Amino acid sequence: MASIPAKTSSLKLSLVPGPIIVGAGPSGLAAAACLADAGIPSLVFEKSESLASMWRHWTYDRLSLHLPKQFCELPLMEFPEHFPKYPSKNQFISYIESYAATHGIKPRFGCAVVQAEFDSAAGKWRVRTQFEEFLTRWLVVATGENAVPVIPEFPGLIKFYGDVIHSSEFKSGEIYKGKKVLVVGCGNSGMEICLDLCRHNASPSIVVRSNVHVLPREMMGCSTFGIAMALLKWLPLRMVDMILLFMANLVMGDTGSVGLRRPKAGPIELKDLTGKTPVMDVGALSLIKIGKIKVTEGVREITGQGAKFVDGKEERFDSIIFATGYKSNVPSWLKDGGGHFTAEGMPKEPFPKGWKGEKGLYCVGFTRRGLLGTSFDARSIATDIQLQWQLGS
């Protein structure tokens, strides 16, 4: 890496021969591995002190992959054969560590990107960290769509006397034994947190603010997602949705009868349109049916002792957990979104075109299609940069 005099600040300015990748989660590592396989070196910046920090620090203990492992592999490396069908959180982290080691990826940890912008005079991307500035022909944004926890504003929240956390801080239901807990958000995290709370003898209520698709993780011994992927090879999307919902109703019954009303669009169509993932049930629904998990309508107001709901009811709670998801942090450091990202930090072009911007800007992990989308992006980026690399050599 060559050093050249800095022109715009007192920081040391270095010229990077290959791409800079921002983020050392699964997306950043997948991009780095595909580039390395193509013979292209990359420099990976990671603001935390570890690989896959979100998986390591922001997930609950009982988490396992919601999809079978073959749908969650990163490019160029399978999961170990001895791993179960649905690897645990710790198994996935060990896979990520092995993945980085196998592909020789050594990120710069504790290195947060403060700002990045295209330098028209240099014809390159200028990337600034706390300590240095860098120029690169290619910038790969791999901070992902789930970089910053989101807690919606609720009237009265500041008055609540009990504990309030985001799901990223939840590890286990053990400390909630005997307590009444309000879980806001009915996605996969919210449902699994409720399940864990029940297993530790807490009393959870889950807020369902909108319609939601709940599907069994498996049907007839096969992964529901795997069935969907197989059917999509032969049938139109809406027909596949009809088949999935018919089978789900046979297995689960009418989820609307317990307060989990389904959207008008089918689960796959809704995922394509909005990025909203269906809930893969691993046991929470049966506890809802017997009243161990209480389903409530939207919250109108948080009180000092609990919450008032839109149906006029009021209830006391000891703790509130917001399973309300995450958002992109791209607007905080990529100037003007690089012309490629919206104000919300998502690519302007939907999948499968969102991976490539202009002037050497790329992104990986913003497809709303999980690790399968990440793999598609990473391979596409490496192929595109390889063509330019070969022409420039």
Rank of each mutant, 00 (worst) to 15 (best):
Y362E: 10
C198E: 02
F131G: 09
K271Y: 06
P5L: 12
C198T: 02
A24N: 08
K356N: 07
R217D: 01
I20A: 11
R128P: 06
S64V: 04
L285S: 01
R62K: 11
T8S: 13
S210M: 11
I206L: 05
P236D: 10
W355V: 09
A116F: 00
I206S: 02
G226S: 00
W58R: 15
L237P: 04
E78A: 15
G325N: 00
T8M: 11
A382G: 10
I21P: 04
T324R: 06
D241I: 06
R199D: 04
L195H: 04
K289S: 11
C222F: 15
P75T: 02
D196F: 03
S120F: 08
K180Q: 12
C363F: 03
I93E: 10
K271H: 10
K313R: 15
V282L: 02
R209D: 02
Q388Y: 12
G373W: 05
L231F: 14
R262T: 05
Y95T: 07
F160H: 06
T102C: 14
K264N: 10
A31K: 11
I193E: 03
T367H: 06
M242T: 13
H213A: 12
S9V: 11
P19A: 15
A265K: 00
G360C: 00
P331T: 09
M77I: 03
V140I: 07
T303R: 06
C111F: 12
R261N: 07
V330N: 05
P350S: 07
I165C: 13
P17S: 14
D196P: 00
E132S: 04
G360E: 01
G23Y: 11
P75A: 06
P263G: 08
C34I: 10
L334S: 06
L387I: 15
A147L: 11
L270T: 09
D384V: 09
R379E: 15
L232D: 03
F131L: 13
L63N: 04
F131T: 15
V240K: 06
S48F: 13
D272R: 14
L371P: 05
W333F: 14
L371C: 00
T324D: 12
F79K: 01
L387T: 15
P263F: 06
R369C: 04
V212S: 13
A122K: 14
K292G: 09
K348E: 14
F131I: 12
T136G: 02
G39L: 01
I165N: 12
W55T: 05
D241H: 04
N211G: 09
G144L: 03
K159F: 08
S64H: 15
K85Q: 09
A122E: 15
A228D: 05
A323R: 05
L157Q: 13
I320K: 00
G266C: 01
A228C: 10
K179Q: 14
A122M: 14
F118M: 00
